[in-house]
Design a protein around this nucleic acid. Structure first.
Lengths: 222, 222
DNA sequence: CCATTCAATACTGGATCCAATATCCGATCT
DNA sequence: AGATCGGATATTGGATCCAGTATTGAATGG
């Protein structure tokens, strides 16, 4: 089977590998702590080890894998403490981003957010976790990018990537999606009124709920 | 010539290349915006292109170089706006780190800082810019690492790396070193009294002076 | 029976070689 | 003359192959 329904492959092998690895991580195909056998993985993805290793270097910088010289790469194990730390850092950075965004208030921001929010709600109603996660990310980053601080945006994106594996888990449950939808609406209306404090408060709550859920899940499995 | 006075090479070629590139960036040997010719550079460093490319991937993640598919790597050009953004983010993250450090207050922190501060002052007096930059970094990271937040430490380290090229410039001038020494002393004494607010205030000032200097330098050259 | 040593093995790190893409420059056409 | 097309060249992306290190397990000695 070639060239039928399958998604178009990225232009370079590294990018393809990178996407595949991220996907594998988010779907939980590969468990944290597992060593990465480059030969086997490269063969499975039908590429050589060179682009694989370059992709792993990227993931290493993002903290998704760790590397030991002459021993190889391992999927990073995120402890509850790690996750809490990441969410705390996100809080600091996203607060700054949102404040900056509302101070600049680019044209059409509210409208764009409302439009994306509709997509979020459609996905939430349909119970489509993947679409929900994707639209949710677009929602948040539309707001964050409005800050006009590209490095800040990149940092925040990295932090999101690091916790992707756990986010899908969160949105898998109905009440979580429901709650997220409500919090988003509150954010949209705060943005509409250019009320930075309110927006930040709602986003804090949004995040805190996610952390609470993680605490629950990881608390009982670890 | 082998194994005489030359610094011991790191265990892997990538690490060697990484150090060399960082050094070249900090010393200004390679100017921002310049394309990186892999073949030439690899030959100059006497390694193959593979470890070079992996090192570049690391630098890319840190924002020191940018990469365009099939066109190669380029040394990143940091505008004044970029630098200001980085320093703003550092302020947010370092404030958190210092607050956490003082809340935990690990044993011997003050003593260690005092010891390192002595090294900083020796280097400052001697006018040894490299030693000064190195000791200065140790000083700040000793404090930051006391936060017990490893991810936060990593992020801050990345931000420092991104501006290394400009930091050496700052410490090249006598009055700057002098001022840094005084600010450090104030930080040490604030830490000794477990006064987080004071420590944060002094660090903010420390950073602000650096930014002001950059603004001056870049303002007149750009 | 357990610890230690040493060799076989498996895997990573690196070098070389090949393929694919972008860039540059001259020829051609309007 | 200027713009456009096409081919030569330079440079990156990727595959294969080799070298060096860590790991594993069996043999040996206490």
């Amino acid at each position: 089977m070639s060239g039928t329904v399958e998604r178009r492959r990225p232009p370079t092998a590294q990018q393809f590998v990178l996407e595949e690895l991220r996907r594998a991580i988010t779907t939980g195909e590969l468990r944290p702590g597992d060593p990465i056998r480059q030969d086997a993985l490269a063969a499975r993805l039908d590429v050589s080890r060179v682009p694989l290793r370059e992709a792993l270097k990227t993931l290493e910088a993002e903290g998704l894998v760790v590397h030991h010289v002459h021993r190889g790469y391992f999927f990073a194990e995120l402890s509850l403490a790690d996750l809490e730390e990441i969410y705390r850092i996100r809080q600091l950075l996203e607060t700054e981003a949102v404040r900056a965004a509302l101070a600049r208030m680019p044209d059409g921001l509210t409208g764009t957010l409302e439009r994306i929010q509709e997509e979020v709600e459609r996905a939430a109603d349909a119970g489509d976790v993947t679409a929900m996660a994707e639209a949710n990310r677009r929602f948040h980053f539309t707001l964050i990018e409005a800050s006009g601080m590209p490095r800040l945006v990149r940092l925040i994106a990295t932090l999101w990537d690091a916790t992707d594996a756990y986010r899908a888990l969160y949105y898998a449950e109905d009440p979580h999606r429901e709650r997220a939808v409500h919090e988003h609406r509150a954010v949209v209306s705060a943005v509409g009124e250019a009320d930075g404090t309110a927006a930040v408060r709602w986003l804090d709550e949004h995040r805190e709920h996610a952390v609470a859920a993680l605490r629950e899940v990881l608390g009982r499995t670890d």
